[in-house]
């Protein structure tokens, strides 16, 4: 599955599953950029059909509702939805 990379501070593997049409997904992406964190993101609605299921499967492991945005931080925690404080908190060590 092809992800797009955004450069920034290395905070481990940060992956954002998003939809290209979703308002909270863009807000999450903007927040990560504002925090200056390196991350990969993918717009699941724009993937080829056969890859959509893989993406949804990955998301459901962390978030059974399969909802967007789902942000997976360093394979240790997931932030579901645009929860600004939680996202900021995940990177303020």
């Amino acid at each position: 599955m092809k992800m797009e990379h955004v450069d920034g501070k290395n905070e481990g593997k940060v992956v954002l599953f998003a939809l290209s049409t979703c308002g909270w997904c863009s807000k999450t992406k903007e927040l990560l950029k504002e925090l200056g964190i390196a991350f990969d993101f993918v717009y699941v609605d724009l993937l080829p059909t056969e890859e959509m299921d893989d993406a949804i499967g990955l998301i459901e492991k962390w978030n059974p509702a399969g909802s967007f945005p789902t942000l997976i931080v360093d394979d240790r925690k997931a932030v579901i939805g645009f929860r600004e404080e939680e996202i900021r908190g995940a990177f303020s060590k």
Binding site: L19, S20, M52, G66, S67
Partner: peptide, 17 residues
Amino acid sequence: INEGRYGYPACPCRFSR
């Protein structure tokens, strides 16, 4: 966009096939 690609206005914040 969703109306165009699916033929009905699916929720923009939810995944649709």
